[in-house]
Structures are given as C-alpha cells and as structure tokens.
Write a protein that binds this DNA or RNA. Structure first.
Length: 426
RNA sequence: GGAGGCGUCGCCUAGUCCGGUCUAUGGCGCCCGCCUGCUAAGCGGGUUUGGGGCUACAACCCCAUCGAGGGUUCAAAUCCCUCCGCCUCCGCCA
C-alpha cells in the first residue's frame, strides 16, 4: 500500500510511475476521489458524534421528566450518528481498496517498459565452451540420474509432476548449499531464521500475494484459512507486523530458510522437465528491515551478497535490472541474477532482490520509532540460494566429460572435502 | 480433539458482577524541570496509537482506540455474539 500522503500531495508522481509500468492511471483518480469522499464522511460523522456525546452527559445527570425529554431528543440524533458512521465505514473501505489497487511508485532508475525491456547491468564470468572442450554437455536431468542425485520418476509417482526426490549426493548438495548460505549470512551479521511455511490468511494477505490474480499461484489448505508460502518473504514480512521497531535496531537483517510452494498455474508447458520449475523447493532468503533513506544502498548490498554467493559457486551469470512493467506490485526496483545454463544456451534466474520500501510494512502495520517520531520502515528481500535452480547450475556448469561433476572450492568444506561427484550409474 | 481460566494506553495493575462522574486508577520504567558539593533520595509536570480539522507535518480542537470485529442501548472497558491469542488440566503425538 502506498503512502496516502503521496497520493494526496503528489499524484503526478504516481501517474508517472503507472505510465512507466504501462499501467492505467485510472486507479489514481479513483483513489483521489475516494480520499476526498472519505474525509467528508469523517467530518460529518465526527461532528454529529461530538454532539451526541455532549447530549449523553446531560442525560446522565438529568432525572425524572427532564431525563425523559432529553432521551426523546437524543434518540433522533443517535439514529443520524448511526447512519453517518455506516457511511463513513463504506467510504473508508472504498478508499482502502482504491489505495491497495495502486502498485508501488517505481524508482527513478528503474527501466520503463515490460518483460523484455530489462537492462543488463553486467556479465560476470564466461560461459563454458563445451564445443572447444570437445564434448556435449549433459543436462541436469541426466547428470542427476547418473550421479544418483535427483529422482524425478519417483517424485512424479509419489507427488505428481514438478516434484522430485533429492537423493545421495543430491541431498548432500542441498544441505551443503544451505549451510554455506547460512554461514555467509551469519558472517555478514544476519540473524539466521527457520521460518514457518504455513501461514494464516492475514500474513498472506498482508504481503499482497492474494491480490495478484486472486492468489492463483498460492496453495490453500482445504477447509482451513491457512496457506503454503511461496517464499519465506511472507513469513518474514509478517514477522514484525503490528510492531513499532526501535530505530536503533535497524537495519534488521534476517536469513530465513523455508520450503517454498508454488502452484505454477499459468506456466503449463514451461520447463516441464527437470527441476527448474517445481511446485516445491527449499530456499534461503535474505530479508531486511531498514529506513527509507538507507533502502537503495541496502538493495545494492543485497545484490552484492547474492553475487558473492554465485561467485563462490564459480558460476557464469549476469545481473539484470528488471523493467517497471515486470515488477511485482510491491517493488520499486528489482535485480535478478541469472546463471548460464549450458544445455539451454541461455541465462536463467537464480536469485532476485527487490526494494519494497514501505509498501509492505504500511499494510502489515510495522513502523519505527526514531527519537520521539514514529515513521515508516522499508523492507527488502533477496534470494541467497533457491536450492533446485542452484543445483541445476552447478551440475551443468561444472560437469566433466565422464559425467562426473567438480565441486566448487568454496563448497568442498561443506561436503567433507570431496572435490568431485562421481557417477554411480550409466 | 475435550474442559476451564484469562487478554486494560512500554511493564505490572484498579475498574468489568450492579452500563453514565472512566476525559481509564495506582506503581515501575522513561523524559523534562526544581532542589541538593556530585550521585541517590525528594518535589512538580509529562509519557498509547491512528485519523480528521486548522496549520509551520508546532500549538490547539475533535473522533476513534481497554485483544479484533459485530450487536443491544440515548449511552459499552463494563451486557450479548463471533473470531484471534495466551495459560492450566485431560487426550494424542515427534
């Protein structure tokens, strides 16, 4: 939810942002009108209410005939107050829904346009040239099979399509990656968190995931108002909801591990093979609470931590600055790190970091006290590692002609010093 | 899953049975000032949050806020309903 003050004082800033997103400006006019109507409704109600309260005091002191007379008079007033109160409620609701329909005001630096209008910020490392090395790379499905690391057949048998078992070195790989990510985060001053992946409706609602397409991508528990999170961002954003944080405690940096669940509705036919796009995966997510002023700098730090992790894994990747129209409603800017996937011959998203400013906290009612002033807090999130895609990139990038896979140096200590994963079958 | 108890403006607490003088009591903590060689003590004052009006986003006035949302009533912290949370006991379980 955007700051109502910006809507009132600088509606053109929002209109410009909508333009950059390629979205309609109608929502802005609707919200402005709703704000005016709301304030009028508040004024009428409060005026009558005040009169009623004054009357009430007289009633309390009066007795006998005088009291009866007063009661007769105040009864009508009471009816009016009720009506005006109801009208105010309606106006508030309309205002709130209009306000919620406005996505966050994109950053000045955010490229305008849609999905294809991203800007490549940098390319790090060089994709391996397998032709020059003289062999055809195997895809992660084949590698996962011969290493005994990924069992897709049984995943489908037990849970359905887009499910998998990580087995043997595959399971080891996940644990190593999680530990390496958590260690990096801890060394950078993060608080490590294991977050619930099942949340109540208010948490899911507060982060806005139910707005987008009515929550098409979100699993809901049958017969209960509980939801499976698609990212621990949901739990971590709700973590400090309805709290006033101490200004001195900022920035609050959390590294949260949780399973993530996505229905992947609408992506039928995309990435149907392997573990690039699955209904469930585990992830270590960085989540930050900080001041609005510091948010852009913190965003860069998040990006730097993501890059550090990918570099330790010796992956070739690029950083892209996502265009306005491709941002979620809560982000003002987003960077994706995309790793080179050899058998696809292209870069694929491995991590993503967003600056959501005070869009989420306003809705979840998280604020900060600085001195004697209470003000808004910014939240930012960034992937440290989404296990399945990280595994895909590692296996494909570091494979050797015989089907073995070299482990990146930084990962070896988390693997008992093992340097190479050897095939266990052909 | 069953039974019972509880939820008051940072923390503790009075008030809830019997609705109006609750503009919510008192203590602790914290802030400002006074006093005192310094400190402590003492004394005086302040200390929920959101919204609206007016404006310098000051002061001031108003409205809401006693876990949340409804209801009854001229009037609700107080009565009724629903939900949420916490605690105790039983059952079940890792």
């Amino acid at each position: 939810m955007i700051d109502p003050r910006i809507l009132r004082d600088e509606p053109d800033r929002i209109r410009a942002s909508q333009g950059k997103r390629g979205a309609s400006v109608d929502v802005v006019d609707r919200a402005l009108a709703a704000d005016t109507a709301r304030r009028a409704a508040i004024a009428s109600f409060e005026e009558k209410r005040s009169a009623q309260k004054a009357f009430g005091k007289q009633v309390a002191q009066a007795a006998g005939e005088e009291k009866q007379a007063l009661l007769a008079q105040v009864k009508e007033l009471s009816g009016q107050v009720k009506e005006l109160e109801a009208a105010q409620g309606v106006a508030e609701e309309e205002w709130l829904s209009a306000l919620k329909a406005i996505p966050n005001v994109v950053a000045e630096e955010t490229p305008p346009g849609g999905e294809d209008d991203f800007v490549v910020v940098e390319e790090v490392g060089t994709p391996r040239d397998f032709a020059a090395e003289g062999f055809e790379p195997r895809d992660h499905i084949e590698l996962g099979r011969i290493l005994g690391a990924i069992d897709l057949e049984r995943g489908a048998k037990v849970s359905g399509s887009r499910f998998y078992f990580l087995t043997g070195v595959g399971a080891q790989l996940e644990l190593a990656l999680v530990n390496m990510a958590m260690d990096q985060a801890r060394n950078a001053g993060f608080t490590q968190v294991i977050a619930p992946s099942l949340v109540r409706r208010s948490a899911m609602e507060g982060t806005g995931y139910l707005d987008q397409g009515g929550g098409d991508d979100v699993y809901r528990l049958e017969g209960e108002e509980m939801y499976l999170v698609g990212t621990s961002e949901v739990a971590m954003a709700a973590y400090h909801s309805e709290e006033i944080l101490d200004g001195g405690s900022l920035p609050l940096r959390y590294a949260a591990f949780s399973p993530c669940f996505r229905k992947e509705a609408g992506s039928h036919g995309k990435d149907t093979k392997g573990i690039i796009r699955v209904h469930w995966f585990d992830k270590v997510e960085m989540f930050i609470y900080t001041t609005l002023e510091d948010a852009p700098a913190e965003h860069q730090r998040l990006l730097a931590w993501e890059k550090e992790f990918l570099e330790k894994l010796e992956l070739a990747y690029r950083v892209v600055d996502i265009a306005a129209g491709d941002l979620g409603s809560s982000a003002i800017r987003k960077f994706d790190c995309e790793a080179w996937i050899p058998t696809q011959g292209k870069y694929r998203e491995l991590t993503s970091t967003s600056n959501c400013t005070d869009f989420q906290t306003r809705r979840l009612d998280t604020r900060v006290r600085t001195g004697d002033r209470i003000g808004p807090v910014a939240t930012l999130n960034g992937t440290l590692t989404a296990i399945t895609r990280t595994i895909v990139a590692i296996l494909e990038t570091h494979q050797q002609a015989d089907g073995s896979v070299r482990l990146p140096k930084a990962l070896q200590p988390y693997f008992g010093g093992v340097e190479v994963l050897e095939p266990v079958k052909q």
